[in-house]
Computed example of a mutant assay.
Amino acid sequence: MFSPRTTVVAGLTAAALFLTACSSDSDSSTDAAGDDAYTVGINQLVQHPALDAATAGFKEAFADAGVDVEFDEQNANGEQATALTIAQQFAGKDLDMVLAVATPAAQATAQNITDIPVLFTAVTDPVSAELVDSEEAPGGNVTGTSDVAPIGDQLDLLKELVPDARTVGIVYASGEVNSQVQVEAAREAAGPRDLEITTQTVTTANDIQQAVEALGDVDAIYVPTDNMVVSGI
């Protein structure tokens, strides 16, 4: 889905800058004593190897930098309502920063936490998800890394591997903005490559098998960086 290495580097750089700023602005007794200990919340949408790697890389970056951090790590188990509850709980805690992993978790966190830094990762289009004003100037207290895929290049590879392919099926979660963006990008990229995109949507992981069967006789199936679909395969 995305590069854990990118997450490590970006997480380390952004976290160091943010926490340094927090430290300089704070007059707490721990800072006065020179004890730079921080508490960081992690709101991860679902357990999946790629998302787990992002979270692990983020945590390892602090250890590598020698920064003392206590992590409050929560997993929403694929439920957007749970991700919202986690974000609301974090808003009531004395945290220095929150990492949100995946678009729905990032949206819930950004909507509820405005007074401390919020980092996101595993987000395809942070602008469409209304997390940032733009990639160049995020604005506010939210920033992070994108896992946007080169869909045109991927479809080129498909045509190279299966020259006779004409129809491509996509199953995606209708409630995930990142998936909606990718489907539209796939449609735009498909036309010039003489491909037709057909889709089926799901609202729960239990719907995936039925949705795949409903695609019918397609030549290939494209799996976007859709948290629900990828975790349910």
Rank of each mutant, 00 (worst) to 15 (best):
T7L: 13
L51W: 05
L195I: 04
A190Q: 09
A15I: 10
E136M: 09
E136Q: 08
V162F: 08
T225M: 10
Y38M: 13
T167W: 04
D156P: 13
A76T: 01
E184Y: 05
A137D: 15
N206W: 03
G191S: 15
D147C: 02
T201V: 04
T124C: 06
G144M: 13
L155K: 07
A21S: 09
V8Q: 14
V98M: 04
V162T: 10
T121D: 14
D68K: 04
G175R: 12
T39R: 12
G139P: 15
G191V: 11
G140R: 11
L195S: 11
N43A: 00
V230G: 07
Y172V: 12
L99I: 00
Q107C: 07
V142N: 04
Y38E: 04
A137N: 14
A32P: 02
S134D: 07
D226I: 00
D115Q: 10
A56W: 02
Q111G: 00
T7V: 13
T85E: 09
V98D: 01
V123D: 01
D207T: 02
E70H: 05
I86M: 01
V202G: 00
V132Y: 06
G41K: 10
G92R: 13
K59E: 15
V132K: 14
Q154P: 05
G191Q: 11
I170A: 14
A54E: 11
T20E: 15
E136D: 11
M228G: 05
S134C: 13
E130A: 14
T121H: 02
V67M: 10
P126I: 05
F18W: 10
N112E: 15
E188G: 01
V148Q: 06
T145C: 01
E196S: 08
D147F: 01
S134E: 07
A33H: 07
G139T: 13
E176C: 01
F90E: 14
S146I: 05
V118Q: 14
A102Y: 03
T199Q: 07
A185D: 10
D147E: 04
V67I: 08
Q89M: 05
V132P: 13
G169K: 11
D219H: 02
A91I: 05
A189K: 08
I116H: 12
A129M: 07
S28E: 11
Y172M: 00
C22Y: 08
A61N: 10
A100N: 12
D156V: 04
L12F: 12
V67S: 09
T167Q: 12
L84Q: 15
V218P: 00
A110T: 05
A76Q: 03
V67G: 04
E130R: 15
D68W: 01
V118L: 15
S146Y: 02
E70S: 08
L17P: 05
I151N: 14
A102R: 09
Q111A: 14
V142D: 12
C22I: 15
A76H: 08
E60V: 08
V168R: 06
V98P: 06
L158P: 03
L51I: 04
T13Q: 11
Q89K: 11
Y38F: 11
A220V: 09
D133Y: 00
